[in-house]
Design a protein around this nucleic acid. Structure first.
Lengths: 166, 166
DNA sequence: GTGTACTGTCTTGACATCGAGATATATGTC
DNA sequence: GACATATATCTCGATGTCAAGACAGTACAC
């Protein structure tokens, strides 16, 4: 029934089965792999961005602005929803991005509580270069799967993700 | 060609296609979902462990020891390989776990540079309770997929993970 | 056995994050 | 139009992590 361990998670599951045969550890086959893959992805991303003098957190904010399209402008609130961080973190990020000249902050003319964050020319160029680079690397990471498998995988992941989109 | 957006990542991909039609953003369909799902999983885990007075990082170390089987003992080096953190981090974690009475440190009798970290009775009981709880919750998270889909998903993820197992 | 490289663990300083709370403004109700 | 509630952003203190390097001990060649 049990096949040979083929990756770290197979070994992990086998160890749990030996120690806790009373528990159903099947969920780990999926979820533990998701966590581990994400950890490796973070490292790969960090390496890719380093060549463009960007930290992952800088990239996250800049891409959110880039995706918004011209004039590449969003509120801090929109940015924190897009990046899943807390407001204190976002304030800090915007501060440092502004100091680096990649974004500028200006008052929201329509809501005096609000602020708008805009990509500068430098920021735009930097994020476009880094994003193209990232896609090349991610494409390579996925080269082990054919197009059909990738679509299948994306679909299954979407199903798991749907409940979180609230 | 483009189907309706059904989750956040579909919207993200659509936004990129509009802004950068020159790039092949298909890799995001898989990898962006992996990262997002991992982030949600972290939160779910944190909530599960809170009921057992454990932080995620505590759980990670304790489960590594638990999986090792009797006498629930590993070196710091083995622990950091199992948890993918750096040595400084592991030292800090062991310090605090020892202070909390969940593990004990003792000199390795066979290598005077070395140390062995052992689960205490308290630590064993705590990690067993938290792990059972976690599995229940993870089982629920996967309830959107049938057994066959779960196996398919696990298999595809394993393929992506294999190159990282070095 | 001496020298050199390696291994295992810990120390330190910098840093990004979180969470709670503060402030200012906006919105809706009576 | 006054009041309570909600929203947008920022401030601040605590914390966990990493990276680099220090230090002790081991292994192996010669």
């Amino acid at each position: 029934m049990t096949q040979d361990a083929r990756d770290e998670v197979d070994r992990l599951v086998a160890a749990w089965r030996a120690e806790r045969p009373d528990l159903d550890v099947e969920p780990l086959q999926v979820l533990s792999r998701v966590s581990r893959l994400a950890k490796h992805l973070d490292r790969a991303r960090r390496a890719a961005f380093a060549e463009h003098d960007l930290e992952p957190w800088e990239f996250d904010v800049l891409t959110a602005l880039r995706r918004a399209g011209k004039p590449y402008e969003l509120s801090p609130g929109a940015l924190l929803r897009a990046t899943l961080v807390t407001s204190g973190t976002m304030t800090n990020r915007i501060d440092r991005l502004a100091q680096a000249g990649l974004v500028v902050r200006r008052p929201d003319p329509e809501d005096r509580r609000g602020v708008l964050v805009t990509l500068t020319e430098t920021g735009l160029a930097r994020v476009d270069a880094a994003f193209a680079d990232l896609l090349r690397r991610e494409h390579d990471l996925l080269s082990g799967l054919g197009p059909a498998d990738q679509r299948t995988l994306a679909g299954l992941l979407r199903t798991l993700l749907t409940p979180f989109d609230s």
